[in-house]
Computed example of a mutant assay.
Amino acid sequence: MTQEDVGPVAADALDRVTWALRQAEMAVQALKEQRLRPLGMAAAHYSLLIRVHADPGLTGAELARRLNVTPQAVASLVARLEDRGQLERRPHPRHRHVQELHLTDAGRDTLRLADAVVAEIERQITEKLGPESTTRLTALLHQAADAVRET
């Protein structure tokens, strides 16, 4: 038996849960990109805005950790959204070299429009799944995330 007979991955590699999760995420992200584009937004902009909305006052480093991206990627996105008037930096009350991130009124308006787009994508998915499967899938995804965090 040669190494070529064994192959670089198991025969069931494309049937794994992790692959199905990745395929679903890629499909959702592609649809978000397509539907947010008319608003002049990318899915990454939406993710950043909604995270800052949920946790106002985050620093760039904290935001990078929560979004699982590099600090450089966050800095670039923050600069872009700040230039658009959707995000502002404010000095941290106790640490003069740290800046907190906050949505502006324009940022909240943009997030409201973008969230309506994302909610429609959610509706499309949940309508196809039905209420029982939606509830079950959500619970299973939380369990999968917990299982990974426990390792």
Score class of each variant (00 low, 15 high):
24 A>R: 15
25 E>N: 14
132 E>I: 12
28 V>I: 15
80 R>E: 06
69 V>N: 06
138 T>R: 15
105 D>K: 10
143 Q>Y: 12
107 G>C: 05
135 T>F: 05
7 G>M: 01
80 R>W: 05
79 A>G: 10
131 P>Y: 11
139 A>G: 02
10 A>E: 02
107 G>Q: 00
54 A>L: 12
134 T>Y: 03
43 A>Y: 10
133 S>Y: 03
39 L>S: 03
12 D>T: 13
89 R>V: 03
134 T>L: 06
135 T>I: 08
16 R>Y: 05
8 P>A: 07
104 T>M: 04
80 R>F: 10
146 D>P: 01
45 H>T: 07
42 A>M: 06
125 I>M: 11
29 Q>C: 03
34 Q>K: 15
125 I>N: 02
81 L>V: 10
137 L>A: 08
65 R>M: 06
80 R>G: 02
109 D>P: 00
96 R>D: 04
40 G>W: 01
62 E>M: 12
53 H>C: 06
128 K>F: 10
82 E>N: 13
15 D>T: 11
8 P>I: 03
60 G>I: 01
17 V>M: 10
116 A>D: 09
13 A>Q: 08
103 L>D: 01
76 S>E: 07
100 E>W: 12
4 E>H: 12
21 L>Y: 12
50 I>M: 09
77 L>M: 12
149 R>S: 11
130 G>R: 07
125 I>D: 00
27 A>Y: 05
146 D>R: 15
20 A>T: 09
112 R>Q: 11
96 R>I: 07
28 V>S: 10
6 V>I: 14
7 G>T: 01
142 H>G: 01
2 T>I: 09
94 R>A: 06
